[in-house]
Design a protein around this nucleic acid. Structure first.
Lengths: 107, 107
DNA sequence: GCGACGTCTTACCGTACGGTAATGCATTAC
DNA sequence: GTAATGCATTACCGTACGGTAAGACGTCGC
C-alpha cells in the first residue's frame, strides 16, 4: 500500500470537502441529498463528485440504502493517514490544543 | 482576522511544500539553497515560489542573513490553525496515535 | 567601482481542478 | 409496464496551480 497522505491532503485542500467531512463527523452518516441540502450554491452532481474524491482518498465509505447512498467517515483511513503527520508536528500545536481545551472548560 | 484554514490546507496540499515543512521541522532553520539541495528535480526559483506560498499562508517566517534568507516554521500560526481541526477529529486518530507511540516505544 | 552570488519577481506554458449540464442506471411509486 | 426519483458518470469550460526560464534587486568579494 503506497503512501496515502498525498491523496489525503489533496482531498482536504478543498473547503467544500472539508465541510462535508465536518458534517459527517457531526451527524454520523448522511445521504447525498442530505449533504446537498447544506450546500445551496452547488448542484447535486457537484456534491457527488466531491464524495467520489473523498471515496478515492479513502476518507469516506458508502453503503447503499434503497435508492439512497449513505456516506460515513472511514475512521481507520482517517486515523492511519493523519496520525503520523499529527505526531510529527505535535510539539507545534499541543500548546494551542491545551489552550483550546481550557477555553472549552471555562465556558 | 478571517479564517486561515483555507490558506493552510491549500498550502499543505502540495507534497513539495509538505516536505519543505518536514525539513524545516527537522533542521530548525534552513536557507533557500539548503532547501533546494533536497529537491534535485526542481529549479531554485521553484523552491522560492513554494516558500512564498508558505509565507502567504503564515506557516513559515523568513529572516535575512547576509545575502541568504533563513526560513523557519511559524509555530504560532501552525498551532492556531491546526489545533481546532485536530481537536475536531481527535476521536478518529487518537487510537492510531496511541498505537504509533506504542510501536515507537517497542522498537 | 565591478563581477559573482543568492534570492525574489515576472511572464509564460501545460495540466489539473472545481463547477455545471446532460446522460445513464438503478430503485421506488403508480 | 411506465414514470419519477436518487445518484453516478461523462463531457465540457474557465480558472488556478506547479513548473521553468529570464530578468531585477540587493549583498558579498575583489
Amino acid at each position: 500500500m503506497p503512501d496515502r497522505s498525498d491523496d489525503l491532503f489533496r482531498a482536504m485542500a478543498d473547503p467544500t470537502r472539508r465541510r462535508v467531512l465536518d458534517l459527517l463527523a457531526e451527524h454520523g452518516t448522511l445521504t447525498v441529498s442530505e449533504l446537498a441540502a447544506h450546500f445551496p450554491d452547488l448542484v447535486a452532481s457537484g456534491i457527488s463528485k466531491h464524495l467520489m474524491a473523498l471515496r478515492a482518498a479513502g476518507l469516506v465509505t458508502a453503503t447503499r440504502e434503497g435508492r439512497h447512498q449513505r456516506y460515513a467517515i472511514d475512521a481507520d483511513t482517517m486515523a492511519e493517514a493523519m496520525a503520523p503527520w499529527v505526531a510529527r508536528y505535535e510539539a507545534y500545536w499541543s500548546g494551542a490544543l491545551a489552550r483550546l481545551r481550557d477555553a472549552a472548560t471555562d465556558a
